[in-house]
Amino acid sequence: MIVRIMGEGQVKLDDAHFTELNKLDDELLQEMQRDDEEGFRRTLNALLDAVRRLGTPLPDESLEPSELILPSPDASLAEVREMLNDDGLIPG
């Protein structure tokens, strides 16, 4: 799966990693529901760090269609709320 982190670029990520990422996504969703800004920031950074660590960056000139788009590390709680679907940022 191709994942885009807004403002950074794209990463190719094996589907096997989505269990780990979904745990962070669920935690992020709970923190957002509680308006826990500090927890939200910590978990968003952990989620993005996991994508970077587990994925393989694509070259900047590569323009693959992104199957998943994640917010930038400096995105606000309100901005991320606008990106959410019923499952959080990561479907499944």
Score class of each variant (00 low, 15 high):
14 D>C: 08
89 L>V: 06
79 E>D: 11
5 I>E: 00
90 I>A: 01
75 A>L: 10
37 E>V: 05
38 E>I: 11
8 E>M: 07
90 I>D: 02
90 I>H: 00
1 M>V: 10
87 D>W: 06
30 Q>K: 14
43 T>N: 06
32 M>P: 02
41 R>A: 11
78 A>E: 15
40 F>M: 01
77 L>D: 01
88 G>Q: 03
14 D>K: 11
62 S>C: 12
28 L>P: 01
57 P>T: 04
38 E>C: 01
38 E>M: 04
19 T>A: 15
75 A>W: 01
70 L>R: 02
41 R>Y: 01
3 V>W: 02
13 L>N: 03
60 D>T: 10
91 P>N: 07
57 P>I: 07
31 E>H: 08
82 E>A: 15
2 I>N: 07
73 P>A: 03
79 E>A: 15
61 E>R: 09
36 D>E: 09
52 R>M: 05
26 D>V: 12
4 R>C: 08
58 L>N: 03
88 G>T: 04
34 R>A: 15
7 G>L: 10
70 L>A: 03
7 G>C: 09
13 L>D: 00
1 M>R: 06
37 E>L: 13
8 E>P: 03
38 E>H: 08
59 P>R: 07
29 L>R: 13
3 V>Q: 02
27 E>P: 04
24 L>C: 06
60 D>I: 08
74 D>C: 08
91 P>Y: 07
66 S>L: 03
56 T>D: 13
64 E>K: 09
15 D>E: 15
17 H>S: 07
13 L>F: 03
16 A>D: 14
35 D>W: 08
5 I>W: 00
72 S>Q: 13
26 D>Q: 14
7 G>D: 11
45 N>G: 08
45 N>Y: 07
54 L>G: 07
74 D>E: 13
9 G>D: 05
35 D>Y: 07
27 E>H: 10
45 N>R: 13
48 L>N: 01
86 D>F: 12
62 S>V: 13
34 R>H: 11
4 R>Y: 05
65 P>L: 10
7 G>M: 08
68 L>C: 06
71 P>N: 05
34 R>I: 02
86 D>S: 15
57 P>F: 02
45 N>E: 12
8 E>V: 03
19 T>H: 13
67 E>G: 15
73 P>E: 04
42 R>A: 10
11 V>N: 04
71 P>Y: 03
11 V>I: 12
57 P>N: 11
38 E>V: 12
28 L>I: 04
80 V>I: 04
23 K>N: 13
21 L>N: 02
48 L>I: 00
87 D>Y: 11
61 E>F: 14
31 E>K: 12
82 E>M: 14
31 E>R: 14
70 L>H: 00
82 E>V: 13
7 G>E: 09
56 T>K: 15
10 Q>H: 06
53 R>P: 09
32 M>I: 10
58 L>E: 06
34 R>N: 14
77 L>V: 05
72 S>H: 09
35 D>T: 11
57 P>Y: 04
78 A>P: 06
13 L>P: 01
22 N>G: 07
59 P>G: 13
